[in-house]
């Protein structure tokens, strides 16, 4: 069974239809990268799945259960964790406090403060520091750790490389790849096509709110994704000729 199933999902920003009939499924242990230009609807799609943005149509199912009418905090309690764009840490709290607040989701599981500290060792010495005083990489690690503390079934990562230097992005991705290797199910929004193709099992490309390309990362070339990215050639949608 699919862990996460999205069917004909629609979302709007006022008059603008940001997500147009998006459908896809995410399997347990899979990493799915969502790529697309700015304004393609990637962040809105992620936020809609997490319940942070209202859907105007369609369905979202987690472990076979409809979660369309569930608010964000209930979706977190059911197993969806969002690492929002820009990290959105609780800046006047320490790293540890940020992590412990995520216990509000109330899901038992393997992720504890100690487990996060082991997964992100750079946070160990900063655990009692205010997150406002951390480096960008440490903040991103805290944001990912905070989401993991909810012991999610699905981790939604929105632009984890945003605002980080290339070196730090490499290091954050090294940590993410360890998470992926441990079987964490991830839906990842990423602007960097090369990186998306390298880390993901599958890649979906969005353009103007719709999925215009979907396929296994190993079967897609960077040129194919680039064409879809810029709307130059809507060659395949889920492998079906347009």
């Amino acid at each position: 069974m699919n862990l996460l199933a999205v069917e004909n999902l629609q979302a709007r920003h006022g008059l603008l239809q940001a997500v147009r009939g998006v459908s896809f499924a995410l399997h347990k242990g899979e990493t799915l990268a969502l790529v697309g230009a700015n304004g393609a609807g990637k962040t809105t799609l992620l936020r809609t799945i997490a319940g942070a943005h209202p859907a105007s149509g369609g369905r979202v199912r987690l472990n076979g259960t409809d979660i369309d009418d569930r608010p964000a905090h209930q979706r977190a309690a059911m197993g969806i964790a969002l690492v929002p764009e820009g990290r959105k840490l609780f800046s006047r709290m320490t790293v540890e406090e940020n992590l412990l607040l995520a216990r509000a989701a109330g899901r038992p599981g393997r992720w504890t403060v100690d487990a996060v500290m082991q997964a992100f060792p750079n946070l160990q010495k900063r655990r009692r520091h205010l997150t406002a005083h951390l480096s960008g990489g440490e903040q991103q690690a805290t944001a990912i750790g905070r989401a993991l503390m909810t012991n999610p079934d699905v981790l939604l990562l929105d632009e984890v490389s945003l605002g980080l230097s290339p070196l730090v992005v490499d290091q954050v991705y090294a940590q993410l790849e360890s998470l992926m290797a441990s079987g964490t199910t991830i839906l990842l929004v990423e602007q960097d096509l090369r990186r998306a193709l390298r880390v993901a099992d599958r890649v979906m490309c969005m353009l103007e709110g719709s999925i215009v390309l979907e396929g296994a990362a190993r079967d897609l070339t960077r040129e194919q994704v680039t064409e879809a990215y810029f709307g130059l050639g809507r060659a395949t949608v889920a492998g079906i000729p347009a």
């Binding site: 412990l100 607040l101 403060v113 997964a119 992100f120 060792p121 990489g137 360890s178």
Partner: peptide
């Protein structure tokens, strides 16, 4: 303040080995 302390935590899982972030 918000010195948040967990009441009781389940035991930790085996660590995932990851490199340090430097920035």
């Amino acid at each position: 303040g918000y010195r948040v302390v967990a009441g009781r935590e389940p035991p930790a899982v085996p660590a995932i080995q990851t490199p340090h972030i430097r920035s």
